[in-house]
Simulated scan of single mutants.
Amino acid sequence: MATSLMTRVKARVDLYTSNRARGLIQGRGRSLFKGSGEDFDDLKYYQPGDKISDIDWKATARSGEPLIRQFNEERVRHLSIVADTSAGMSATAADGTSKREAMILAAGMICFLAQKNGDLVGLVAGSEQHPVQLPARSSDGHLELLLRSIQQGTTTASGPARSDWLLERAFRVTARPTLMTIITDEAHPTVDDFSALRRLTTRHDVMVVRIADGDPLQATAMDMDVVDVDDPREVGSLARTSKRVAQDVAAYRRARGEGISEMLERLHISHVLTRGETTVVDDMIAMLRSREYRHGPH
């Protein structure tokens, strides 16, 4: 009987994390994914950095000091995974592993974190012709189905990436505010997706995990065939051995990456570019630790 994907994820998380990181994953007794909550708890004096919208103006008028409303955190949070299941994600990652397997591991990390904290996870994936959507749930069977849907939906026949369609669909079908994790490759989301991403951030807390592509030329391994999965054709040996082509490709990828990073930073979206399956766990932990630092108490 084949090992479940969630079992494989849990084994990798345990293998690649230190005790300190494992404590972060388990949330140290509280949900890693902090929200504003809905249940009123108490009043406290306003401090610099508190939200102006939380000020209780009637209580403030009575006391003569600015008071803000405190809320209990919601017991159950909703998370969503937006997975790029295009043909490009079935190709090779920068570390030589499969981008699809790295994406499954990244999604599994989110599922593992959510299940530890009693949170619910949904999925948005697929294409315009074959959209995939799963509601937010937390059972073992649901999380396994979520990962299997990503695995089975990501093939060389999936078609080219359409990040504009994927982001638009994520906005339309995910009405409840969530912590939304977009998992894609290094070329996405593109700078043309700025408006769609900005709209997502008005409703959701967004993170982006980008998986780097393998060397598109592989000039040092000429015994290996190199095929572009988005536009299926073999990359010729002349292109793979040309220094000029290599320089142009490197410059293009560098400029594209800088543009995407600048866009995500401008939108205050947590993001990471990982080399593949061998690095995605550690890289996501670093990103989540950075989020914990920014959103935690000061």
Rank of each mutant, 00 (worst) to 15 (best):
M1Q: 11
S4K: 11
R12I: 05
D14T: 11
R22I: 01
R22C: 07
L24A: 07
Q26L: 15
G29L: 01
S31W: 13
S31P: 05
L32Y: 13
F33R: 12
G35K: 11
E38P: 01
D41F: 13
K44W: 02
I55L: 08
A61F: 06
A61R: 14
R62T: 06
P66R: 06
I68Q: 00
N72W: 08
E74A: 12
L79A: 02
L79N: 03
L79F: 01
V82W: 02
A83K: 01
A83V: 00
S86D: 03
M89C: 02
M89Q: 09
T92I: 08
S98P: 05
E101D: 15
M103E: 02
I104T: 01
I104F: 07
A106K: 02
A106G: 04
L113A: 08
Q115C: 04
D119Q: 12
A136W: 03
R137W: 05
S138A: 14
S138Q: 15
S139C: 08
L145K: 09
L147E: 05
R148A: 10
S149A: 10
S149V: 00
G153F: 10
T154N: 13
T156Q: 12
G159A: 03
P160Y: 05
W165A: 02
W165E: 04
A170P: 13
A170W: 00
V173C: 09
T174Y: 00
A175N: 12
A175G: 07
R176Q: 14
I183H: 08
T184P: 04
H188W: 07
F194D: 07
A196I: 11
R198M: 05
R199G: 00
T201V: 09
T201Q: 11
T202F: 12
H204V: 01
D205F: 13
V209G: 00
D213H: 12
G214A: 11
D215V: 03
P216Y: 13
L217K: 12
L217T: 04
D225K: 15
D231A: 09
D231N: 13
D231V: 08
P232S: 06
V235W: 10
S237Y: 01
R240L: 05
R240M: 10
T241C: 12
K243H: 13
Q247Y: 04
Y252R: 12
R253E: 13
G257L: 13
L264I: 01
R266I: 04
R266Y: 06
R275C: 00
G276P: 10
E277I: 10
D283N: 06
M284S: 02
M284W: 04
L288H: 07
L288R: 04
L288W: 11
R289A: 14
S290C: 02
E292T: 14
Y293E: 12
Y293T: 09
H295E: 14
G296H: 00
P297Y: 09
